[in-house]
């Protein structure tokens, strides 16, 4: 049989079998057993992961009577935004009744300086460790990394004493310092590994040109490390925003971050439980890290992978 005849007998695109036997791609059914199992499992798992988010949103949009009578999974019959308004501006914790807004602004005032300070310190540390190895530097670095695994409970009280000595116990600045300290191990590791992976020649060339420690850092390393800064910001904003332990230990009721205030609102023993307000407050607290997560996508994954695998 000539080539010509064979090619004529093969219709374009489709899998086909004739006298010569099968040709083209092996036919695959969309509903093969493998696909049903694969996508079935994934969809069931995805539903399980999405369920709490769905219930949170649905509950926060219902009125209390509807919650008492209805089903937590059913969509709201009458959508109301009142729970959101209440959660934000009038929900009570103890004597204060100005809602979560106070906690939100406290968290902003904690998170922004903590992120900037911790990243500034850690990037310089990482740079010094990667490019200016001095005697003993590695020892401190190892202590730092091992320290990342020490339970915070062991160091909580000594830090209380230190902060009290310098007069920052209970203030937002004190908490900023605590976050910078405990963010240091992972961030330093992140920056050190990133700077180590940059070509050594670049650093040598800059030194030959007469640039010093800060010159090289500001003019060469910083501009080239934007991606890792983004990763670090994602890591820190979510980490600090979500912190509860340090917030509850190192701040006073009027400087409580959002997570602490949320817990106090929801778990307060006085009054009637308003589940819709609680869920609205919960979503509000989770909103900042969620928005960061959905915007940053792959960078978030890279951040936690870098932070976790090598930490």
């Amino acid at each position: 049989m000539s080539d010509q005849a064979v090619s004529l007998s093969v219709p374009s695109g489709a899998a086909h079998a004739d006298a010569l036997g099968p040709s083209g791609p092996k036919p695959r059914h969309i509903f093969s057993r493998r696909n049903i199992f694969l996508y079935g499992t994934l969809i069931v798992a995805a539903l399980y992961y999405l369920l709490p988010l769905y219930v949170m949103i649905v509950t926060s949009l219902k009125g209390m009577p509807e919650i008492r009578l209805g089903n937590i999974f059913s969509p709201p019959l009458e959508i109301t935004f009142e729970p959101w308004v209440k959660a934000w501006s009038t929900a009570c914790t103890g004597l204060n009744c100005d809602g979560l807004s106070r906690g939100f602004w406290n968290s902003v005032r904690i998170t922004v300086p903590s992120v900037i300070l911790s990243i500034a310190i850690a990037s310089v540390n990482g740079y010094a460790l990667a490019n200016w190895r001095f005697k003993g530097a590695d020892t401190f670095f190892i202590i730092l990394i091992v320290g990342a695994f020490i339970p915070y409970q062991v160091m909580i009280y000594p830090i209380v004493i230190i902060l009290r000595e310098i007069g920052l116990y209970g203030s937002l600045s004190g908490l900023v310092i605590v976050h910078s300290i405990f963010g240091m191990p992972i961030l330093t590791l992140l920056f050190r590994n990133y700077f180590t992976s940059m070509p050594e020649e670049l650093f040598r060339a800059a030194r030959v040109d007469g640039a010093g420690f800060w010159g090289i850092y500001l003019r060469i390393m910083l501009p080239m490390s934007l991606p890792i800064f983004v990763v670090a910001v994602i890591l820190q904003v979510t980490g600090i925003w979500n912190d509860f332990l340090f917030g509850v230990v190192y701040t006073r009721p009027d400087t409580y971050p959002m997570t602490v205030q949320l817990n106090n609102i929801v778990n307060s023993v006085q009054g009637v439980k308003e589940y819709n307000v609680n869920m609205a407050a919960t979503i509000l607290t989770g909103l900042v890290p969620l928005v960061i997560y959905f915007i940053s996508g792959r960078l978030f994954v890279r951040g936690i992978a870098a932070g976790a695998v090598k930490g």
Partner: peptide, 30 residues
């Protein structure tokens, strides 16, 4: 799928705990 499986990790333990407290509420939950 990856985004769905990973998003809870962006949430704090406080938020996680409160959501599940609600889901496991014996009167109104599951």
């Amino acid at each position: 799928f990856r985004t769905i499986f990973l998003y809870p990790f962006a949430l704090s333990f406080i938020v996680t705990g409160l959501v599940w407290q609600w889901l496991l509420n014996p009167d109104f939950g599951i």
